[in-house]
């Protein structure tokens, strides 16, 4: 299983490298001791930074959320051209579109935190000293992180990223009118 995991990280090289960088950045912000920042190491922590667990809830949440958000955001930006050009309108001749599609897929396949970080978040959030409001507000995030991190252990996020990429135009189309209005307002300004 680890071998498969490492192989999928190599196949999604740019996403893995960027996610490792974002995790490193987050750990520096939180001043968490970092043990190993290599993106491609032959272990379960491939494409992750080896670091101490955050001691407080805020840190535990940030170490899961910030890399996830940045990676997912960049994936969406790549797919805006890649997925729309290739899957939505059928522009199969543009190599740049294929590259952007692969970048979007790579980032989508590397957006979830490590399972250890998620378990740490769970302990801080739902432990004895957990704050009730935080438990409710952060529950959706925790659910997403937990499922994603668990799936990533078995490299299933490689498949879920494929599904996300394939259906990205349909997903994004739900907020399309809002985006179009914003773009038009921006161009008017």
């Amino acid at each position: 299983m680890t071998t498969l995991y490492i192989v999928t990280r190599f196949l999604t090289f740019f996403g893995a490298e960027a996610r490792t960088f974002f995790e490193h950045l987050t750990c520096r912000i939180l001043k968490l001791p970092i043990e190993d920042t290599r993106a491609f190491k032959p272990s379960e922590l491939c494409a992750h930074v080896e670091h101490e667990l955050a001691p407080k809830l805020g840190g535990a949440f940030l170490v899961c959320w910030l890399p996830f958000t940045l990676t997912t955001l960049m994936s969406c930006l790549f797919l805006l051209t890649g997925a729309y050009r290739i899957l939505y309108i059928g522009d199969y001749s543009s190599l740049i579109s294929w590259l952007l599609l692969w970048l979007g897929f790579s980032f989508a396949a590397n957006c979830f935190p490590t399972f250890e970080d998620v378990l740490n978040l769970r302990d801080k959030l739902y432990g004895q000293k957990g704050h009730t409001v935080a438990k409710i507000l952060l529950a959706p995030y925790f659910a997403v992180f937990f499922c994603g991190a668990w799936l990533e252990r078995f490299s299933i996020t490689f498949l879920t990223a494929g599904v996300f990429t394939a259906f990205f135009p349909q997903i994004f189309t739900a907020i399309f009118p809002l985006v179009k209005n914003i773009v038009q307002m921006s161009s008017d300004i």
Binding site: A18, F21, C27
Partner: peptide
Amino acid sequence: RHYPLSIPALLL
């Protein structure tokens, strides 16, 4: 706690 950021990773 002050592990330096990788310059190639930053540039990439």
